[in-house]
Deep mutational scan, measured.
Amino acid sequence: IGSLMYASIFGNVSAIIQRLYSGTARYHTQMLRVREFIRFHQIPNPLRQRLEEYFQHAWSYTNGIDMNAVLKGFPECLQADICLHLNRSLLQHCKPFRGATKGCLRALAMKFKTTHAPPGDTLVHAGDLLTALYFISRGSIEILRGDVVVAILGKNDIFGEPLNLYARPGKSNGDVRALTYCDLHKIHRDDLLEVLDMYPEFSDHFWSSLEITFNLRDTNMIPGSPGSTELEGGFSRQRKRKLSFRRRTDKDTEQPGEVSALGPGRAGAGPSSRGRPGGPWGESPSSGPSSPESSEDEGPGRSSSPLRLVPFSSPRPPGEPPGGEPLMEDCEKSSDTCNPLSGAFSGVSNIFSFWGDSRGRQYQELPRCPAPTPSLLNIPLSSPGRRPRGDVESRLDALQRQLNRLETRLSADMATVLQLLQRQMTLVPPAYSAVTTPGPGPTSTSPLLPVSPLPTLTLDSLSQVSQFMACEELPPGAPELPQEGPTRRLSLPGQLGALTSQPLHRHGSDPG
């Protein structure tokens, strides 16, 4: 009997000691992992102490058991019943959930998450997105703005933001810190809205009876308010094209079509300037034949640059190039080494500058006005007194259609001029006259002087055409309008007829 009692007592005591040691061994194993994590990542002392304290409290609170892992091991129907039991206190005593059906309560219970916070733990920081609604079931918390405590909340209090009033989550206007050990039930806004969409009859009752104890939403960050730039940057990543407008005076608003859609830094370009900076079609017209890549860069430059609305530039004389043409100036200075066709295309550029300027006046029909002061630039669209967005969009579309028509007509005119030049060069190729044979009589004449090349004649003739079109064909006081194609086609051969009437002889060394 004594040996039996000794064996039973010894066996029970050893089993008890073994169970104690097993729990202690698990605790030390998990604690060792936490300390190894702290050492590996070199976490500083204040945060390291918070980690160790939280682990110790969580171990004593749950005995080292992962409740979520245990809950996920059950089937979904059983999980709903378990969640309904775990959140029964909240669902029974909170006013917004009263009167809900059994199915609605089960769906809500599945969406709730339980959070346990030790003292000093910050649940929400200032500036964080308010993605959830919090219900306090135990403990107390404090809300701070800077170093000032603005509120202390306790059991059955609710904090967050009214989700039904805002389409997008706002930002917190303060820090939420736990004063004691707290148990909180939180539900994400997407989950709550999903359940309320499934039960629309409960939705009206819920929003009407929901009383948020403390609204954390920062009202200064609401979209459309003066301080909402940061919020707009976070939620409006896919922005449309940006529009900046110059201020319109009362006198300017009476004149229709007073602005032109141009790229940034293009205030001095012609009315047909689009795409790359520098001139019509993204580059100076005089350098068009020598740089074919300008047409390839036109599309990307047009689509990537934001639109700006600026006044037209001052008018340019008909014979003056659009500006920024070092290529043609070098050719004029060193005409001995340049291609003979460069002079002809220089005359073509003069005609283009004249036609572009006159067509700009035809479509816009307003006098040039000086540029406004820099303080009046970049007025935002949302400022008071601005035109409605639809009106601005319609004006932009009208300007775009005008620019497209202008570009089409300029292309047709350019093709006409090039065809005339090619026809003239085919009839009378460039050549130098040879020395004529002296006559049989004693009164022999001296050799004839060489005839100037055709490109120079073409430049003079085209300059005469531009001056003739600019000065004589337009009646005084009438708006400057571009001439039609047949009129220009008839004027060019008439001007060139006198020049080509002389018999030109080919030089023996000319390969053409």
Rank of each mutant, 00 (worst) to 15 (best):
R359T: 12
L377R: 09
L144K: 09
L406N: 04
D250V: 10
P380M: 06
G282Y: 05
R168S: 08
C369L: 08
A132Y: 09
R359G: 12
E161Q: 03
I158L: 07
Q419P: 03
S273T: 12
A151N: 01
T373W: 11
P440R: 10
A178Q: 01
R177I: 08
I136M: 03
T436D: 09
T131A: 08
S444L: 08
G356P: 09
T443H: 13
S209M: 12
E161S: 03
W207E: 03
S314C: 07
H507S: 13
H188W: 01
S236D: 12
L341M: 10
L406I: 11
S501F: 07
L496E: 10
S349Q: 12
M425S: 12
I187V: 08
K242G: 11
S446N: 09
L341H: 12
E296L: 15
W207K: 06
E325A: 11
R302K: 05
D336N: 05
T416N: 13
S272M: 11
S294P: 13
L410A: 03
Q364A: 14
E365T: 07
D510H: 15
V150M: 11
E393C: 15
I141R: 01
R246Y: 11
P317S: 09
G512E: 08
K240C: 10
P430Q: 06
D250G: 08
G360F: 14
N378H: 14
R274T: 04
F135E: 01
L403C: 04
L231V: 11
V435L: 13
E296S: 12
P264Q: 11
D191H: 03
G227Y: 12
N404K: 05
T253W: 11
M198W: 06
L481T: 10
A478Y: 15
R168L: 11
Q467L: 08
N220D: 14
L216A: 01
P226K: 11
R241E: 12
P280N: 12
Y134P: 01
A132D: 12
E194C: 09
G299E: 07
L327I: 11
T131Q: 10
P340A: 13
R247S: 11
A371V: 08
G160A: 03
R359H: 06
R241M: 12
R308E: 10
E332G: 09
S461Q: 10
T219Q: 10
P322E: 10
L243S: 11
H185E: 06
A470T: 13
S260E: 10
L377Y: 13
Q238W: 06
L403M: 04
V150R: 03
L196M: 08
Q467R: 12
E211M: 05
C369P: 12
A470H: 14
R316G: 15
E332Y: 07
K155Y: 04
T131E: 11
P326Q: 08
R302E: 08
K242S: 13
S346P: 07
F235M: 12
R423E: 04
L193N: 13
E201T: 06
S394T: 05
P315M: 07
P280A: 10
P292S: 13
P476G: 10
R266M: 11
M198P: 02
T426Y: 13
Q238L: 09
M198C: 08
S466G: 11
P292M: 03
E161Y: 03
R316M: 03
F312M: 06
L133E: 01
R241L: 09
D157H: 06
E194P: 03
V149Y: 02
D510F: 05
Q424R: 10
P511F: 11
E258L: 10
L396I: 08
I222G: 12
L376G: 10
T445A: 08
F206Y: 03
P300F: 04
E142R: 03
S466N: 12
S137P: 02
G324V: 11
R189F: 05
V392A: 15
E211G: 05
R387W: 15
E332A: 12
Q424W: 05
L396K: 04
F345N: 10
P226Q: 14
F235L: 11
E407F: 01
Q422N: 04
I212W: 02
L492G: 07
G160M: 01
S305W: 15
T337L: 07
D510Y: 08
Q422S: 08
P455R: 11
L144Q: 04
C338A: 13
A167R: 10
D397W: 13
A261E: 14
S342A: 13
L327T: 12
R145A: 08
Q362I: 08
E480T: 12
G347D: 11
S286D: 04
R409L: 08
G324N: 15
R247H: 08
L179N: 03
F235T: 11
K155C: 08
P430V: 12
R405S: 04
Q364S: 12
E332R: 09
Y432Q: 14
G233I: 08
D336C: 06
R241G: 08
L193Q: 04
E201D: 10
G224A: 09
S394E: 13
L309W: 13
Q422M: 11
G439C: 09
V176L: 02
S208E: 04
L262G: 10
D147C: 03
D250E: 12
G224Q: 09
F159H: 01
D183W: 15
V392P: 06
D297G: 08
I212L: 11
W207I: 05
G170F: 03
G299L: 05
T436M: 10
R506P: 09
T180C: 05
Q362F: 12
P311K: 08
Q238R: 11
L133D: 01
G257C: 12
